[in-house]
Each structure stands twice: as C-alpha cells, then as structure tokens.
Amino acid sequence: MQIIDAHHHVWDLAVRDQEWITGPGLAPLRRDFALGELAPQARAAGVDATVLVQTVTAAEETPEFLALAGQSGLVAGVVGWTDLTAPGIADTLAAMRELPGGEHLVGIRHQVQGEPDAGWLLRPDVQRGLAAVAAAGLAYDLIVLDHQLPVATAVATQLPELTFVLDHLGKPPIAGGSLRPWASDVRALAARPNTVCKLSGMVAEAGAGWTTAGLRPYADTVLEAFGPGRLMFGSDWPVCTLASSYGEVVDTAHRLTEGLSEGERAQVLGATAARVYGI
C-alpha cells in the first residue's frame, strides 16, 4: 500500500514571515520548519510521498516550493498560490509549469477562510480564475471555515469541470463536540461529484487532550459522505504539532480507517491523492 501525506507545509521565517502565526496558542509554530525535519518522520511512519501546500498569498512561494519538490525524493506534488482574479491567470499557470520542478504543480489554493467577503468564491472574477485552473488540469484546494461550506457547495455546483478538494473537513468545531450544522453542510458538498475531502487537520481543531474516539464521528461523517474513493489522508504538519506528533497523526489515520476493507483503506491513505493530484 502506497501512503501519501496529501497535506503539509514548510516555511523559513528568514525568507518570508508567516503573518497568520499570532498569539500564544500558535507560538510553537513561530520557527522554521524544513523538509529535512519532516522527511525522517515521514519515513519512520511509512509515508512514501507528500503534497506540499501553500501557506501565504505570495507569488514567490510557489516557485520555491516547486524547486524544492524537484530536488526532493519525498514531495510528489505542490498545491501553490496565484491570484485567481488576475486577467492573465492562464498564462501564469502555464509559466509555473515551465519553472524548475513545474511538473509537480498539482493544484491551487487561496486562503478563502480569511476573506471578509462571504461570497468571495462566487465573484465573477474568481470564477473566471477557477475555470482557468480547471482548464489547466489542476485541482483547487478549498480552505474554508465550516460556515463557508454552503458557498463552497454553490461554486462546486457552478463549476462541475473543476475538482474541489476540501481541506481539513471544512474545519468542523471538534473541540466543542458539535456536529451541526457542519455535518449536513459537508454532506451537501459531498453530493457534488467533483468534490474530494482531506482527512486532515482534525487534531489541531480538537486541541490538547484530543482522542481518537473524539475524532471518529467527524471522520465517519466524511467517510460516509464522500466514500473512500473521494477521501485522502493529510497530516497538516507542522500545524498538527500543536496537539500531536507526526507519527501519532499517521497512526490515527490508520485507526480511523481500520473498519474499511484493505482496498478502501488504500484509497484513503494514498490512492485517492494519487488519482486526484496525478501523482
């Protein structure tokens, strides 16, 4: 079974600040996290390949990530960032593919969770950009908060040609133990056949003292809604280190999928990511 970690980050604060790392709760993340730190942990956990995901809205980050992927035996794909509203987005995406490591570009992401406009994804200029992402044969990662799921469903309905990948289950309120209205909203998104979900980010949402039993209702909800063929594991390293070690996150993914058949587990732990991202 090939295991793919479909969601992790790296950053170097000397190169670029991570402005989102604020407050005492995130203080442990205010240091550099390099691929050289992750690689031995991934090998120890049996992870064969990873997908490196953007962290900031800076055009310079994606070429850096592509170059890193080109030099790495671990990173098989990069979900980068570009301005979806730019008139020349199609040319920009094509140019990215020509960069060193450009063959590793598999998707685009924007921090929709931080947009003050609740309908940002439905803006005409954004939808033109998303259509260009689809035309380029790339996926689009949705980083949204739970209350933004209905808008995500609306845009997925309007752009059936684009594969939308929901990061972190849409950030349900795991720490509070609530399933509503998140569960019904995520099921509505899953009803769109062009959507996929990442089994990722749960320990950070649950916080200190999390348990596998506490995560299971959320994992079971997306397993039922999307099915193993549209669900992929991601560690969300290093954000996961706020509440867990990398190895524990991988082990938890195994435990949360232990009720599946071997073929279904293989899909969640690697095959879905390989298919969706073309790895």
Rank of each mutant, 00 (worst) to 15 (best):
V196E: 11
Y218E: 05
R192C: 15
P172A: 00
A190Y: 07
W210Q: 01
Y218V: 13
R192I: 11
A190S: 10
A175P: 10
R216L: 12
S178F: 09
L179H: 03
A183F: 02
S184C: 05
I174A: 06
G177W: 10
A191Q: 05
P173F: 02
L199R: 07
W210A: 02
W182F: 00
P181T: 00
G176L: 14
P193N: 04
W182A: 01
C197A: 14
T195V: 11
G201N: 07
W182L: 01
D185I: 10
Y218H: 10
G207T: 05
L215G: 04
T212P: 01
T212S: 02
W182D: 01
T195Y: 11
L215R: 06
R180I: 10
A208T: 15
R180E: 15
R216Q: 13
R216K: 13
Y218G: 12
S200Q: 10
R192Q: 15
W182G: 01
A206P: 00
G207A: 04
L215F: 10
A175K: 15
A206R: 01
V203C: 02
A208H: 15
W210F: 05
S178D: 14
A190I: 06
G214T: 02
P181C: 00
T195P: 11
P173Q: 06
A191F: 01
R216T: 14
E205M: 13
A204M: 12
V196I: 15
G176K: 14
A219M: 08
A206Q: 03
A190P: 07
V203W: 00
T212F: 03
G214I: 06
A183R: 09
P173M: 03
I174H: 05
G177E: 09
A183Q: 11
A206F: 02
L179R: 04
R216P: 12
G209I: 03
K198N: 04
G176C: 10
G214E: 02
M202L: 15
G209E: 04
A191I: 01
K198C: 03
K171Q: 02
Y218I: 08
V196W: 11
A188I: 14
T212G: 13
S200P: 08
S200F: 11
Y218F: 15
R192M: 13
V203E: 02
V196L: 15
G170C: 05
C197I: 05
T195M: 12
A204V: 13
A175T: 12
W182V: 01
S184F: 10
Y218A: 08
D185M: 07
L179A: 08
S178P: 01
V186N: 00
A208F: 12
T195A: 09
S184A: 15
R187V: 12
S184N: 14
P173A: 04
R187M: 12
R180H: 11
T212N: 07
A191L: 05
L199E: 06
D185G: 05
Y218S: 08
N194I: 04
G177N: 05
M202G: 11
P193K: 09
E205A: 12
S200C: 12
D185F: 05
E205G: 10
G176D: 15
